[in-house]
Amino acid sequence: MKEMSEEEFARLLDKKLREGLDAGEAKRLEIWLAGSAENRQAAAEIEAILNESRIKAPPADTQAELARLKARLHAAGTATEPQPPAAAGRRVLLHPFWAAAATLALVLCAAYFLTKNGRVELLSVSAPAGDMKRVELPDGSVATLRAGAVIRYSPDFRSAAAERRVLLSGEAFFEVKKNPAAAFVVEAGGCETRVLGTRFNVRALPDAPVTEIAVREGRVLVFSRKGNDQAILAPGQQAVFDNKTSGIKTKSVDTVAVAEWRSPELLFRQTLLRDVAERLSRRFGQPVVFENTALIEGCRYSAFFPEADLNAVLKNLESVFDLHTEPAPGGGYRLRGGRCPG
């Protein structure tokens, strides 16, 4: 008796909210809810649907409507023949047809998904080394691939009814055309990022310990493919997915820094030096490290470079913060000394 169909628990939740359950029903629902987190999630979704589907009729002015009624009555006079009453039987003729049509549609959808899930050769697009590539996807969404990145997607991407799925290796910025009927899913590293229409960046470098997702606009859902963790991101938030543990941590990120690699410019607005170091390392693909830890947590930097050039940035940082730059033994740069200006 523990098994309960989705229809049944949905009905019980509705009844509970409307007129209350009897003891037996309440017990069944309680057992079912305690059964799994999935069940509780389903219940939360059903309750949200019930809440949002409440009929909220815009107000109607009774007195104005009464005046209109009287006007109609007197204009028509009592001689007007009323329309013949609706024959109850006619309704019965129509409904089975529509019910059957709906059922047929469902069956067609099911058949469609079965073929879709069979093995399909995926299309593959990649950006050459040293250059980025703009890819227009069949649904009108645009993926900008950073040098070396590869995306793959199914040839029936556009017509796929349930979701639009792409596989990513490397870093790419997505501008997704909104479609509430089909989520756009980016599979990268060990995680999936699910959106409906938004702009976001996914960085999934091969052999990197983490996969990072940052949002420029809209909201995205990131979850581990193992199902052990998930996060919802708003603009200015970044998820760091640990490819080993499948754990997700979130942190804030300046929206101008999201996918800044797409533009030749480099802009810092009151950016903490800690974040400056991170952005430079990422942008130029080599570690840039400030040795003075007090400095990186306390000082902010504002600068604009129309053409991003690491040497120019380092030179400017040296002069603003009184630093000394030297190449680091393992590659990249180390910045020593320094103090906040003013």
Binding site: A44, I49, A183
Partner: peptide, 19 residues
């Protein structure tokens, strides 16, 4: 309700707080 939940699944995943 079952059908609505299917149709809205991608939205619910994004708009609802995850338990």
């Amino acid at each position: 309700l079952k059908s609505l939940r299917r149709t809205l699944a991608p939205w619910l995943a994004i708009l609802l707080p995850v338990l």
